[in-house]
Nucleic acid binder design. Structure first.
Lengths: 210, 210
DNA sequence: GAGGCTAATGACAGTCACTGACAATTGACA
DNA sequence: TGTCAATTGTCAGTGACTGTCATTAGCCTC
């Protein structure tokens, strides 16, 4: 790696860290791109040469985590039922995700940024759009596993939509609660995924759920 | 209603119609607020006194339709299983929605705007965020029907997430296809909701689906 | 029905995200 | 070392929005 390349990398990292730190402390809307650029002592124009927009910095870490989940799903044995494969892939890639995050920023910072995403309307909207793109990708993977045509058979997209829906519910709940650990989120996710079966049973009134 | 009120109503309607017409023909990003204001011959500032932002005009009609669905769910007999209540409420409010839309703009225009929403990243993101707010409301209604606490029992949010997920999948498919009628969309929605059961069965390989 | 009150509007200036263009700088490599 | 190309800064401009203030126009009372 060149001096030139190393310098670029350092600038990119510095911009990312400065942005996330500012978002976590001051809030997303309250942070201007000029603030971020000033914190790293580069021009605003330079910021936009590294990131397509303010938003991109907020999702940088999330993007890495998502990639891992997709890979984990791809690696699942073909015998598993679709929903089970998704469930296991997600829960088992948790530790790897943890490490990946730590390479970029402290996990704690990422968790705080995550809450900012959930509580900032503009970011939440972007997050949901990104999530549907991910779901499309997962649906294609599932369809391939099962030897189906995604555009002809509704089932792959439906399972993935259900899966994605449950994930989003847990994300919301987690970000609204006060346990901001990765492990707490994992627990919540596992619990909710276990509730899918019961939730779809016709009658809920026979016996309570945990 | 006095002259003043009538004038305001006319301005609001004119702005809304001009905006939707422009979005449908020229595209959302290609339409500036100045364009909309100029089409109605008012100042840009006046536009912002009637609508919180450009986005709001794009979702004005959708908002009305959503309100109807919520009411329809509220009106469902308490005996029905949750998912069934949601399904029936949606499919049965279709005609009412059609009428409501027609009171504001031609249904055809609304359908074209709808496609613009689905194909414009910024609008799609906003749409998804609005959808999750709707889901939260529905989850509360379902929980109340079943005499449950939304925050203690995961099931209401899970069914609604599943339901919402299926709706979004059909919205996407419909907007990507070439049948832009309301009836076509209704059909697609019904078909997909019918596939929920089969999609959750463990093994998909025994027998094909329609 | 004239005049005062208040709500609606327009005009203007300013902020913030983002983009294009051009010139200055700086590392790479012969 | 000198040339070439990549990186950066500066400047100007657009588009969504917001605050402010003066002007206009329905409304209501005397």
């Amino acid at each position: 790696m060149n001096l030139r390349e190393r310098k670029k990398q350092r600038t990119r990292d510095a911009l990312l860290r400065a942005a996330l730190e500012l978002f976590a402390t001051r809030g997303y809307e309250e942070t201007t791109v000029d603030d971020i650029a000033a914190a790293v002592d580069v021009s605003q124009r330079t910021f936009f040469r590294y990131f397509a927009g303010k938003e991109e910095t907020a999702f940088y870490v999330t993007r890495l985590a998502e990639t891992q989940v997709v890979e984990a799903v791809r690696a699942r044995p073909p015998g598993e039922a679709p929903l089970e494969a998704l469930r296991r892939a997600l829960l088992e890639s948790w530790d790897t995700i943890n490490e990946t995050i730590e390479e970029i920023v402290p996990v704690d910072l990422h968790m705080r940024v995550y809450r900012v995403i959930e509580s900032t309307p503009a970011l939440l909207a972007a997050h949901l759009r990104r999530a549907t793109e991910l779901e499309e990708e997962l649906a294609r993977i599932i369809a391939e596993r099962e030897g189906l045509d995604v555009d002809a058979d509704p089932r792959p997209r439906i399972v993935v939509a259900l899966f994605g829906g449950v994930i989003r519910v847990t994300e919301r709940l987690w970000s609204a609660g006060d346990d901001l650990s990765l492990e707490g989120m994992r627990q919540l996710t596992a619990t909710y995924l276990d509730q899918v079966g019961p939730a779809l049973a016709g009658n809920w009134r026979t016996g309570q759920s945990p």
